[in-house]
Simulated scan of single mutants.
Amino acid sequence: MTKLSVNINKIAVVRNSRGGNRPDVVRAALDIEGFGADGITVHPRPDARHIRYDDVRALKSVLRTEFNIEGNPIESFVDLVLEVVPAQVTLVPDAPDAITSDAGWNTLAHREFLTGITARFHERGIRVSVFVDPVPELIAGAKACGADRVELYTEGYARQYAAGPEKALAPYLAAAEEARRQGLGLNAGHDLSLENLRYFVERIPWTDEVSIGHALICDALYYGLENTVQLYRRELNF
């Protein structure tokens, strides 16, 4: 069964827009766990415009489900992950000024760097997932770097889904099959939603985990947070 990890960055955006601690991201994360999510994802960035490093520390001390920290492995991020020791770290090559992640790693060009970073996290028993575009060669490259999983960057799938689900999924299916051949676990994330999620996991049922934030929090404005988490769980438990 594919697990649902909820990215709570957008909850932190609302908090940061006014200062103070409303909404409380730690309480929200605990509620989301209680509503049925299998894990919590955060993506702290250097400018702290949403999740802050102190949020990450506070969350680690109270979460009961799997904790996934994603981000660009600059030294301060690496130090934070080694301090907190989450279940999983997802390596994402986003620039400091990126609005959101917009590409995966070139695991061939950055093999030496990713291999060294992965080894450091493995020393602390942290599972390593590498964010990649749906290109089989890059999947094999992630394996060569020592990664445990890859996370497929699904923005392209989501953008093309309405025009034709089968065509939109094709490169992701090929990449997922390569991950399975390589013995890698498989995650997916970015712009997955109630509209396109079920088709993805129906066709790629060996997906271990989806990480969903923006669409889920947007849906929660209309449906309520508890109901929304359960709606997404329902799409995964078809």
Rank of each mutant, 00 (worst) to 15 (best):
I32Y: 02
I32Q: 01
A29I: 06
I51A: 10
R124M: 03
V62S: 14
T228H: 13
L225H: 04
K143T: 02
A12G: 05
S129V: 11
H122Y: 04
A215L: 02
Y199F: 15
D55S: 02
L236C: 07
K167L: 14
A144D: 12
L186N: 04
R233C: 14
L91N: 08
L231H: 07
R18V: 13
L197C: 11
V201T: 13
N9K: 03
D191G: 11
R234W: 08
D97G: 00
N106C: 05
N16W: 08
R18A: 14
Y172H: 12
L63T: 02
A170V: 00
L114C: 09
D31L: 15
E75H: 03
R52P: 03
V210R: 06
R149Y: 15
V130R: 05
P44L: 08
L225G: 05
V132F: 12
Q160P: 00
Y222P: 00
V14N: 01
R159E: 14
P136K: 13
A95Y: 10
P205L: 06
G19F: 00
T154D: 09
A28V: 12
D219I: 01
S76F: 01
G71M: 03
V6I: 13
D79L: 07
R22I: 15
S193D: 14
G141E: 09
D24F: 03
G183T: 07
L225I: 12
D54G: 02
S5D: 11
V26N: 10
S5A: 15
R181P: 09
C218P: 00
G19H: 05
V201W: 06
V85Q: 15
E151R: 02
A119D: 13
P205F: 03
F67R: 01
F35Q: 04
L173Y: 06
V135M: 07
G164T: 07
T107Q: 06
I204M: 11
R120T: 10
D94P: 02
V229L: 08
G36L: 10
A95C: 04
A170E: 15
I204Q: 08
N237L: 11
F77T: 00
F200Y: 12
G116S: 14
D97Q: 13
L231P: 00
G156K: 09
R15H: 09
A29H: 01
Y157V: 07
A174D: 14
M1P: 12
D54E: 15
E123M: 01
L152C: 07
R111E: 15
E209A: 09
V6T: 05
R181V: 01
T2A: 12
D31A: 14
L221K: 09
E178T: 07
P96N: 12
P86G: 13
H122K: 15
I40R: 07
S76Y: 07
A28R: 03
T207H: 05
N237D: 15
L231Q: 13
A103W: 07
I217K: 04
E75A: 14
L216Q: 02
